[in-house]
Design a protein around this nucleic acid. Sequence first.
DNA 1: TTCATTCTTGAGTCATCGCTCAAGAAATGG
DNA 2: CCATTTCTTGAGCGATGACTCAAGAATGAA
Lengths: 205, 205
Amino acid sequence: MNGPGVKRGRPPAFDRTTALAAATRLFWEHGYEATTIGELTRAMDIKPGSLYAAFGDKKSLFKEVVHAYGLSPVGAFIGTALEEERTAHGAFRRILREAAAVYPDPSHPAGCLTISAATNVTVQDADISTFLSDLRNANLAAFETRLTTAQRQGELSAAANPRALAAYFAAIIQGMSQRARDGATATELTETAELALAAWPPAQG
Amino acid sequence: MNGPGVKRGRPPAFDRTTALAAATRLFWEHGYEATTIGELTRAMDIKPGSLYAAFGDKKSLFKEVVHAYGLSPVGAFIGTALEEERTAHGAFRRILREAAAVYPDPSHPAGCLTISAATNVTVQDADISTFLSDLRNANLAAFETRLTTAQRQGELSAAANPRALAAYFAAIIQGMSQRARDGATATELTETAELALAAWPPAQG
DNA sequence: TTCATTCTTGAGTCATCGCTCAAGAAATGG
DNA sequence: CCATTTCTTGAGCGATGACTCAAGAATGAA
């Protein structure tokens, strides 16, 4: 019996993670449909045959990219803040401030991949569009859950509306991503974040 | 000498405004590149030859669509509010509330065409992307101008930052457009608008 | 060495993209 | 009527899209 780690046949000539990172950059920058297989193979430094053998079709590659993105610091900072911060207010303050720093960071394409990579799509790729909008709406639901918890724990005023607050923060985050893609600086986005936090409801009244 | 209104030759079989409206719907819904000439000719009920004779190439048609959109109620409500409202606060309050009502209106595609029709674009169509982002940034500049005026007139506190406020409102509006495309209702967006208005700086302090 | 397995390669498939054009049809002017 | 002008039509162009596949190369097992 062979150990499960034993590799047979010709080994891959490329590093899967590195290739995926190259694909991520392209999808992040131009979006799903505007990124061609030709551009992908060139950036990943592999031929079409290898790409399809390793990742399936274009949609599968994209979904794997989105999954990996969600595990990266840039793609996970929202969930991390929701988990790590004790208070909901602290969590959203941290989320907005980190978004302001991360979205315009020149070390990667501007904005959030989940927000901007599949906004313009043909009918036959509508599933890719809903794939991302489902992720965004899941984020919205997580916001609402966190805010409802805060309200039950007394942090958030009983007069506050968790669902409305969640939608508001979702909108601000998506807007900040778009502004980053339009050239907004970290300074501008930080100011936007601070202004946005003014909407946080006053303590129990 | 012939009068300038005299038409010669075979008259067009389609109404230009109607055809443009059909093209607008498609670009609005799917974006620039994801809308094909085939879909356009079918929706406009004309053949490719007529389309190219009447509108030039695809980019020219798109720019004409954007221009017409900017003159329509949906595309002009921001500029209208900035002009008609006496106070800056009244203007932005009206802009956000109208956006909340207009963006999810089911009588047309969701969100704002200028915001969402060219976010995912190939390199050869990068000019279309910047064409729209220039419009968005021009809007941002108009916001700042209005707020600076309000500050000079004493409506806005001297401690306020017109540029930061302008960027904040631009982000909120773009975020509301995206949320509308993700299925947000007018009710949700109205709540978002009201929360966003809480960022308006208190009177002179 | 030989076999089986896995990956690479380059040529190529089919569909669709934006776009063009010659020929015909519908109007006006003489 | 004919000539001129303008628009419509249907066929089709070259380029490019996603994707495939047979043949060769590199590995471990026997």
